[in-house]
Simulated scan of single mutants.
Amino acid sequence: MKNYAPTIPVCQLDENNYFVGMTTADLDPLESNGHYLIPRLCIQAEQPESKKGFIAQWTGDNWQYIEDHRGETVYSKETGEVVAINEPGILPAIVTTMPCPDIYHQWSEKANNWVEKADAAQLRLQNKRNTAGTLSRMQMLSQLEISLGKNKQALVEAAENAMSGIELIKIRNYILETQSFALENELWWNFLTNILQIQQDNVFEMWAEARTI
């Protein structure tokens, strides 16, 4: 009587026939002809070759190798955000393995890379203004008097000489009444850069100096 091994190695698959690993099948104790109890989702086949970046899939006759990017960090070409890859296969055309440098870049298919947006300089300036914080009334007016020699009244006169209508009323009230100044305020930014003609870089320098007052 032929002796059979108590177990044999078999390949374990998932629901999509992707190779999971090796396991064993037990000899059927009720048969005497070498029949083995093959576990569900397992096949008798040679263990597939291990290939970096690929996963083996059983076709029914042999192994085919599918790109496998699960676990890799990829980024949306539209938003630059990290995208999770949950299934084997080639990478979707809407993602890239290159991280977006910052919010001032966008993906270019032509360059196959991230390129600066056309309005990057404007966006950087706006972000710098938005994150500059606020200054108290005393800090702002004192700094303008130190830097430009203009007190509160001189600031109002400068506005009256260059502006009119509702814009003049708004900026005059801002100068006379506001308790905190912010560069993200479009009216105040335009007053500093257009009416008082302070260079943008100098505005930020003055802003930083005013914090020490």
Score class of each variant (00 low, 15 high):
200 Q>F: 10
60 G>V: 03
111 A>P: 08
171 I>F: 09
137 R>K: 15
209 E>K: 14
133 G>Q: 08
175 I>E: 12
85 I>D: 00
72 E>Q: 11
4 Y>E: 11
198 I>A: 07
208 A>M: 10
85 I>H: 00
125 L>T: 13
20 V>N: 06
51 K>G: 00
138 M>Q: 15
15 E>W: 12
157 E>K: 15
204 F>Q: 04
128 K>M: 13
48 P>C: 04
130 N>T: 10
95 V>Q: 02
33 N>M: 07
99 P>S: 06
26 D>A: 14
83 V>W: 00
130 N>D: 14
159 A>V: 13
203 V>C: 15
16 N>P: 01
90 I>A: 13
83 V>T: 07
207 W>A: 02
99 P>G: 06
51 K>W: 04
206 M>K: 13
196 L>I: 02
151 N>P: 13
108 S>Q: 12
36 Y>P: 04
47 Q>V: 09
172 R>M: 13
3 N>S: 12
59 T>F: 04
131 T>P: 01
148 L>N: 02
80 G>P: 00
73 T>N: 10
117 K>S: 03
29 P>W: 06
63 W>G: 01
99 P>I: 05
193 T>N: 12
38 I>E: 01
136 S>P: 03
128 K>A: 12
69 H>Q: 03
182 A>M: 13
139 Q>D: 05
94 I>H: 11
121 A>T: 09
44 Q>S: 10
183 L>Q: 01
166 I>K: 07
15 E>D: 14
34 G>H: 08
115 V>P: 06
138 M>T: 15
169 I>F: 07
201 D>F: 09
114 W>G: 02
68 D>F: 01
184 E>Q: 11
116 E>H: 04
91 L>I: 00
179 Q>W: 13
129 R>Y: 01
131 T>A: 14
82 V>N: 03
130 N>A: 11
19 F>H: 02
211 R>Q: 10
132 A>K: 00
171 I>R: 02
178 T>D: 14
125 L>V: 13
206 M>L: 14
64 Q>K: 14
107 W>V: 09
92 P>S: 04
83 V>I: 08
81 E>F: 06
54 F>W: 03
116 E>G: 10
103 I>W: 06
67 E>G: 04
10 V>P: 00
40 R>M: 10
86 N>K: 08
55 I>D: 00
55 I>S: 06
173 N>D: 15
169 I>T: 10
174 Y>W: 12
69 H>Y: 10
126 Q>G: 00
119 D>C: 06
22 M>K: 10
109 E>H: 14
28 D>Q: 07
70 R>I: 11
58 W>N: 01
19 F>S: 00
136 S>E: 11
199 Q>P: 03
205 E>I: 15
21 G>C: 05
137 R>C: 11
161 N>I: 04
166 I>R: 08
67 E>L: 11
48 P>L: 05
100 C>R: 11
72 E>W: 04
122 Q>N: 11
27 L>C: 09
36 Y>C: 02
96 T>P: 05
3 N>K: 12
111 A>S: 13
49 E>N: 03
108 S>T: 07
122 Q>T: 15
33 N>W: 07
42 C>A: 10
136 S>C: 08
197 Q>T: 12
56 A>M: 02
